[in-house]
């Protein structure tokens, strides 16, 4: 193509695409037809020769085998997947059943302990022990109290990531609220159903807040059992209330404090005996 003719198609550089779109048929057919025409042979197509039949047989075979092989691979995979899902669900059910059994046994143990103590050491000691058990979180507790719901600042698609991060509830926020509740006289606290004990940690792991090593979904519901009026007045007047207010003023974090007539908390499931020694024989009670 000489320069200056000006006839060069604008898309000549896209020869591959032109080739594909304008002459998709195998050029071999056209070439063979031309050769036949040149040699003066018959241009009638011969689609039924043995060669063609055999090739089409092979092509059909390829289709059939592929349908079998690739289809089977897919069903194998989905069967394995269904099997795994079934296993996961079965184990989850078992874990839930076991957790229910654990808390059942724990309350049985607590009852038996109380019974033994009452028989051997008198009602006073039994009272002290049951107080201690509810303080450490070994038994389920019930009573009036305070419910504080804390949630991330509202955001939508247009909120930029930095602002979204600022509006997130941090483990530190929950720690401060919980400590303020203890200071206000709470007798038992749980966060999203995780009972806090003297050995519980509220911490961050990646994006999630962990309590008792369980990741919690938002919103975070902190429930405290105690004298509701005293809890509320002490909490809102003290550090906790001021902190929540600062959070909502500065970062838009939503917080909501309610008193509740009746709160029921499960026992902590992660408690275990770390230190125990048999009473020396013949020791006085």
């Amino acid at each position: 193509m000489s320069v200056g003719t000006g006839k060069r198609p604008r898309d000549a550089s896209m020869s591959l695409i032109n080739e594909l779109l304008e002459r998709p048929i195998d050029p071999g057919y056209a070439a063979a037809a031309q050769r036949r025409a040149r040699e003066g042979a018959s241009t009638a197509p011969r689609p039924s020769s043995g060669l063609v039949v055999v090739t089409l047989l092979v092509i059909g075979l390829v289709f059939g085998v592929s349908a079998r092989t690739l289809g089977a691979r897919e069903t194998e995979r989905s069967a394995a997947r269904a099997d795994l899902i079934e296993q996961i669900e079965a184990r989850q059910d078992r874990a839930d059943a076991n957790a229910a059994r654990v808390s059942e046994l724990q309350s049985e143990v607590a009852l038996a302990q109380e019974q033994i103590l009452r028989d051997t050491a008198g009602p006073a000691a039994a009272g002290i022990t049951s107080d201690l058990l509810s303080t450490v979180g070994a038994v389920p507790v019930q009573g009036p109290g305070l419910v504080i719901t804390v949630d991330d600042a509202p955001f939508d698609e247009s909120t930029d990531p930095a602002a979204r991060n600022e509006g997130r509830v941090l483990s530190r926020d929950l720690q401060i609220v919980v400590n303020a509740l203890w200071a206000a006289g709470a007798e038992a606290i749980d966060v999203n159903g995780q009972r806090l004990t003297s050995r519980s940690a509220i911490r961050f792991a990646g994006e999630a807040i962990l309590v008792n090593y369980r990741p919690l979904p938002r919103p975070y519901v902190i429930r405290a059992i105690g004298d509701p009026d005293r809890l509320e007045s002490q909490f809102t007047a003290g550090d906790g209330g001021a902190y929540l207010k600062a959070l909502s003023d500065n970062f838009g974090i939503r917080a909501n404090v309610l008193t509740e007539e009746e709160i029921t908390m499960d026992s902590a499931s992660a408690l275990r005996v770390e230190n125990a020694a048999p009473r020396p024989a013949g020791a006085e009670q």
């Binding site: 071999g28 063979a32 060669l51 690739l70």
Partner: peptide
């Protein structure tokens, strides 16, 4: 296998078109 299937499909449709165009040739097809 998937590639062979696509290549075979291409050959089959090319052949059908050639038949309709009246320029089918068995050697070219195979």
């Amino acid at each position: 296998l998937p590639i062979a299937v696509i290549a075979a499909l291409d050959a089959v449709f090319g052949a059908i078109r050639a038949v309709l165009d009246g320029i089918f040739d068995d050697k070219v097809f195979v």
